[in-house]
């Protein structure tokens, strides 16, 4: 059982409840013990940083300081929300530069009797923790109901891999960790080139036209490649695409009906857990039709015969990149370490 400090973030108590409810049993199953940080506070999301920097930094720093103080034995912290994860890694990296920002933050923290020494904690997103620390082999072992035949679009969003302060991802523009994980669950992973494109963030509140356009692009392409269900790793992404899809339809005259759930919900299904224990049913665009496909026999698709004129593709970079260009069906799972963009 690996023990980690758990920073849930505010969404997990509200819009991301399905995420919270599903990740708890899933983490237990794969041997992740989560110890919630005592007295944590809001990370400030994306807005506060734009208003007043130092208080915003200190708000995040406080969570790091609390985590450091409570980290007896468990040195790493995990955040399931991409915005929380980004903020934590960002402030840790800003403080590590030792250019005075660290002192300002620690000055502010000292009012509450706290302080934080950057670099003390490993900071993880739940997804990278599962892929790299638990390992896809462990995940595969637990699968009792493979998601065979379910066409999933891995939508990782922008905040987890961009900017990659903690150096956790195979590629910040086109990370494949979610593809690998869903592949390990037996799902049919579509090639989803918009995987790190923006969901609109808080634009539904301040500039709905922009948000609708962004949501439309994401969903439209997912439908284009015949996706059954989109998969998110961030409560904000999930909420925007789920909750604002109807408004997007009204605004743009489209007829999108694309369900989106959290990756932990699909992990739970593959592990044989009951739907209602995993927060299914709370989504606004129903996932019912999509998850009905699981378990049903899908005839195996014939492999496309290699055209005799076809030119070979370049070798994949490092471990585990899509094997066959665009068809996106064959995945090589990473065997060791992580796929880093090193020199070939």
């Amino acid at each position: 059982m690996s023990k980690y400090l758990y920073y849930p973030g505010c969404s997990m108590e509200g819009s991301g409840k399905a995420y919270h409810n599903s990740l708890m049993p899933v983490c237990e199953k794969i041997g992740l013990e989560l110890q919630e940080i005592d007295d944590w506070n809001c990370c400030g999301a994306t807005e506060y940083l734009g208003i007043n920097k130092i208080p915003a930094y200190a708000l995040i720093g406080r969570n790091l300081a609390l985590a450091e103080a409570q980290s007896n034995g468990a040195q790493d912290i995990v955040a399931p929300c991409s915005a929380c994860y980004l903020n934590l890694t960002k402030i840790d990296s800003y403080m590590a530069k030792k250019n005075g920002v660290d002192e300002l933050i620690n000055d502010a923290l000292s009012a509450g009797g706290l302080s934080y020494e950057p670099g003390q904690l490993g900071i993880h997103h739940l997804l990278d923790l599962i892929v790299y620390e638990i390992g896809l082999d462990t995940v595969k072992e637990k699968v009792v109901r493979p998601l065979t035949g379910l066409r999933v679009a891995p939508y990782i969003g922008c905040m987890a891999p961009r900017y990659d302060y903690a150096k956790r991802w195979s590629d910040s523009e086109h990370p494949l960790e979610l593809d690998w994980l869903l592949g390990a669950l037996g799902a049919e992973v579509v090639d989803y080139p918009l995987k790190t494109h923006c969901c609109g963030g808080h634009m539904p509140q301040i500039g709905p036209d922009t948000a609708y356009e962004l949501i439309h692009r994401l969903v439209d392409y997912a439908e284009e490649v015949k996706t059954d269900i989109m998969v998110a790793v961030c409560p904000m992404c999930q909420m925007n695409i789920d909750a604002y899809q109807n408004e997007t339809n009204q605004h743009l005259g489209t007829k999108h009906k694309m369900p989106i759930v959290f990756f932990t919900q699909l992990m739970g299904l593959a592990f044989g857990m009951r739907e209602r224990d995993l927060g299914f049913g709370s989504e606004l665009v129903s996932a019912k039709e999509a998850i009905q496909k699981i378990g049903s026999e899908v005839p195996k698709k014939k492999r496309k015969k290699k055209d005799k004129f076809a030119l070979p593709m370049p070798h994949p970079l490092g471990n585990g990149i899509l094997k066959n260009g665009t068809n996106g069906k064959e995945l090589i799972l990473p065997t060791e370490g992580r796929a880093r963009g090193g020199r070939a």
Partner: peptide, 25 residues
């Protein structure tokens, strides 16, 4: 020299999108 490995700029899709070629190819 060696040619820059264009897979490092994954936003250009080399190695992923089949009709993206590098200069030596």
């Amino acid at each position: 020299f060696d040619l820059f490995d264009a897979r490092k700029m994954s936003n250009y899709g080399y190695g992923r999108l089949e009709n993206v070629f590098n200069s030596l190819e």
